[in-house]
Design a protein around this nucleic acid. Structure first.
Lengths: 256, 256
DNA sequence: ATTTCATTGTGATATTTTGACACAATGAAA
DNA sequence: TTTCATTGTGTCAAAATATCACAATGAAAT
């Protein structure tokens, strides 16, 4: 990530991009028992924000969201769930950016070419921390995972976008269980329970959790058990896409 | 509704509107035991479509949706739920409109001023048929309720928008019960059950339905009963907004 | 006037689901 | 060899749900 990305933003590449329509991605993961979200900066001197960017003129929003996320963070090919659009006329202004720039950069920017407002489409995703590899040499300076409860000041309305994303995620859990994205291929029941507890921010009783989850009949218990734990070894489970499709077609819900 | 609305659309009022961003409203109601949706035409000769229009430059999308719906149908001040955006680059083209116009109209339109694509924000609402009064002299010709299972050919991707709206409505039922909008102030349990059956398109057992619904503790039974029925008179109920707020704050869900 | 009959309120019962808790099994760490 | 946190699983009670039954109702039919 270098100044080129900033220029792309500020010029909004007026030939190929729609300068009044953007996407913003709220990427959740769980690490060290905490729910975290991926933040980026355009330049080290600018504030933290969500990875986002403008939609190309010939591009569907879902495609744009994946492209932008990849360009900004190296995160590639994940399922992004569109959850809300943010259309307050005052939510974003190029002027606010412009004012923070150094004079050298300002000279190369023509504000009059940019639209007066930007509407943004919010996407969220849940990803497995271990399988995500962030790119860019200036990692810590312009890209970081931040604990949801310890967010820094964010630019524009990005705090609101994150809050809405969390609400939408919790709703969506009823219709799409998390294990398909957030966990590695093989996982244990206690691990799955822990995810629910972290995302829903409340404790869940162990025995009834297991009974409820297994009744969905979308997880297959394997012969193997998790190795190297200092106590009884838990069974490994695997998400079964076929059983999941069957369950969905029967209108099952995944309430916890 | 006259040709002026059409001109507004085609010129997209370039001074005050964002010509690449629109809203479309899927208004559901139940009449004669059928789930119906509100369709409109811009002109009698043009095809059926959803009530929709462009967003003003200084306007939030939710406001635009209500304004557009009112202008096109006379339906005022209802809760519109934003459910999805439609961003396929080929989903809409002004050209398609243009080609269907008469020469006289064509001469007054400058296509080059219009954007090449339009992204639309989908809204849905559930309304009580009896309390809705459609305006406009050409009612049947340009505005009508249509049974969902007997939809005519629709312009653009509006069939897809309706299908997605129905999916979203069924999901949303878990978090927001319908009786607050779709029913008149006073209603009976069998009427409420009928709504669920129509919207979910399946039969529900009577006794357990009533027990489940009453356990939500958001409906208040009145002393009165429905008059003029040729059998036992059912009790009337009323939606209790305060109890509803309490229930919501406790994270209750309204699964059926 | 009387009977009919579809519909509703409600209870009885069985079944399923959930919650709370107990306890033996496990296996690395002490 | 012992310790001990964790896990799988069972038991039991409580709550929720499904199934069925039946009396009450009151306009419509006779």
């Amino acid at each position: 990530m270098d100044q080129k990305a900033l220029f792309n933003l500020l010029e909004a590449n007026t030939q190929s991009m729609i300068s009044n329509l953007s996407v913003d991605c709220v990427i959740f993961t769980i690490q060290e028992g905490k729910l975290k979200v991926l933040l980026t900066k355009l330049l080290p001197k600018l504030g933290w924000m969500l990875p986002g960017g403008f939609i190309n003129k010939d591009e569907a929003a879902d495609i744009a969201a994946n492209r932008v996320l990849f360009q900004r963070t190296g995160v590639d090919n994940i399922y992004l769930h569109q959850f809300k659009i943010f259309s307050d006329p005052d939510r974003f202004s190029f002027q606010a950016f412009y004012d923070k720039l150094e004079n050298q950069i300002k000279e190369s920017v023509d504000l009059s070419k940019l639209s007066e407002r930007v509407i943004s489409i919010g996407y969220f995703a849940l990803v497995d921390f271990e399988s995500i590899h962030l790119t860019g040499g200036m990692f810590d300076e312009v890209t970081k995972w931040t604990e949801l409860k310890l967010l820094p000041d964010l630019m524009f309305d990005h705090l609101e976008i994150i809050n809405e994303a969390l609400k939408a995620l919790r709703k969506e859990l009823h219709f799409k269980p998390i294990a398909s994205n957030l966990l590695p291929e093989k996982f244990t029941m206690p691990e799955l329970q822990s995810l629910y507890e972290i995302i829903l921010d409340r404790l869940i009783e162990r025995s009834s959790f297991q009974k409820r989850v297994l009744k969905w009949d979308i997880y297959e218990r394997l012969e193997e058990k998790r190795e190297g734990v200092a106590h009884k070894r838990p069974f490994l489970y695997r998400f079964d896409a076929k059983k999941y499709d069957i369950a969905i077609s029967q209108g099952i819900r995944f309430g916890i």
